[in-house]
């Protein structure tokens, strides 16, 4: 474990807590894409298949349970909670996210660390996470006024993978034979997808203006 990875995990945890705070306290999911939440639940479900077979550390298992529990409960909240589901605008959240799943699955069948069910599912989860934010970014472009919690949620979600890139650089230089092209390339693509969001988020913070993404 290094400071970059710990900071990355804490930033990821913070993004989940901000979203849960928004949904649980103000009972609203305005501006949140259910499709991105569904993709993230699938990411964790396929990445943490080893949660009961391989024990890494208490920290690792605890964080996996938190991410699994929070992602599925957020999907449940937006779909089924009588008040929260009313603030979900289905007509705006139109990205065909199923079109993301098939190519990621095909790519995972071709490019993986070992051709076993668990490893193909793990590679699938890495590729899917790289593109899981797309429905949310598309929705943000359509959302006239993005509320602060939503903006902070997306920012933290993007920042966590950027911190993981620093972690991979650190581990490359400090551990022998630490090379993981699958996570490196996917993590870079994932972070680059946030580039324009980061730009407008920073601009709105610097000029103290409302966050607005150009359509």
């Amino acid at each position: 474990m290094n400071i970059f990875r710990l900071a990355g995990d804490m930033t990821h945890l913070a993004s989940v807590l901000v979203l849960l705070l928004k949904i649980h306290t103000i009972k609203s999911c305005a501006g949140i894409s259910l499709k991105t939440q569904e993709l993230y639940a699938l990411v964790f479900a396929t990445r943490y298949l080893d949660i009961f077979t391989d024990f890494i550390s208490l920290y690792n298992t605890t964080m996996k349970l938190i991410f699994l529990g929070s992602s599925f409960s957020i999907v449940w909240y937006i779909r089924n909670h009588k008040i929260v589901s009313r603030s979900y605008d289905k007509s705006q959240d139109t990205f065909r996210h199923y079109f993301l799943i098939i190519p990621c699955l095909l790519l995972a069948l071709l490019v993986n660390e070992k051709f076993t069910f668990k490893e193909v599912m793990w590679a699938f989860s890495i590729y899917l996470e790289a593109v899981a934010i797309l429905p949310q970014l598309v929705l943000l472009q359509r959302t006239r006024n993005i509320d602060n919690l939503t903006g902070q949620y997306v920012f933290l979600l993007g920042a966590y993978r950027a911190l993981y890139i620093l972690n991979w650089i650190y581990r490359y230089f400090t551990e022998t034979h630490y090379v993981h092209w699958i996570t490196w390339v996917s993590g870079l693509v994932q972070t680059l997808l946030y580039a324009d969001f980061f730009y407008y988020y920073f601009e709105s913070w610097k000029n103290n203006k409302k966050l607005q993404l150009p359509a």
Binding site: R5, D9, H12, R47, D50, T53, D54, I56, N60, M63, K64, F67, E113, K114, T116, K118, E119, W122, Y164, N167, T183
Partner: peptide, 10 residues
């Protein structure tokens, strides 16, 4: 288990 890559990151 041997041979199976161990993913220690979340």
């Amino acid at each position: 288990p041997l041979g199976e890559p161990m993913h220690d990151e979340l």
